[in-house]
């Protein structure tokens, strides 16, 4: 059973199973004008559009959402419908372990991935994801390279005390 992310005004308001979506509309939690998305869809569509396709309260008999024509869903290797990775773990790690301000830049971009994606800005989310990754590497590299040199000198015993990094 597919679970739908439902968003209004760029903010996600909840995640609902396909079979409860129509009852959520009935009780006013979700509006037909809200946007929704589930894994396999390449863009957000109106809740009303989804409900009219799946036939209101009648749950689909376990059919995969991706086969529904309305969504013109990508199949196979197309990952446009997936939220891009936010790289938040690496951003925080490189900030703590590499201590140059580059890690902060990575965190700023990481933080933008999910809000953009949930707001329907998939290209923007992918951009933020790519930039977060780039800045993680810059942060990591900015320390890894000096560390590697430092250790090489230290382990060679060539006067580690003389090296004043």
């Amino acid at each position: 059973m597919a679970s739908y992310h439902v968003a209004r005004d760029g903010q996600e308001i909840g995640i609902f199973e396909q079979d409860v979506l129509s009852s959520k509309v009935a009780d006013g939690t979700v509006r037909v004008t809200d946007l929704c998305w589930t894994a396999g869809m390449d863009k957000w569509v109106g809740v009303g559009q989804v409900l009219s396709t799946v036939g209101g309260a009648t749950p689909l008999g376990g059919g995969p959402a991706a086969q529904d024509p309305v969504w013109s869903a990508p199949t196979g290797g197309d990952a446009r419908g997936q939220m891009p990775p936010n790289h938040l773990v690496w951003s925080i790690l490189t900030t703590l372990l590499c201590c140059l301000p580059f890690g902060i830049v990575a965190i700023v971009y990481s933080s933008k991935v999910e809000p953009r994606f949930l707001g329907g800005d998939i290209a923007g989310a992918q951009q933020a994801s790519a930039k977060a990754k780039l800045w993680c590497w810059i942060s990591f590299g900015s320390v890894l390279i000096p560390v590697a040199i430092f250790f090489a000198i230290g382990l060679l015993g060539a006067g580690a005390e003389a090296v004043d990094f």
Binding site: C99, L100, P101, S142, V143, P146, V147, F150, F151, G154, L155, A160, E161, V163, F165
Partner: peptide
């Protein structure tokens, strides 16, 4: 030990 690099920002 001097083998670990000091934080460049602190430096």
């Amino acid at each position: 030990s001097q083998r670990f690099p000091k934080c460049p920002f602190y430096r």
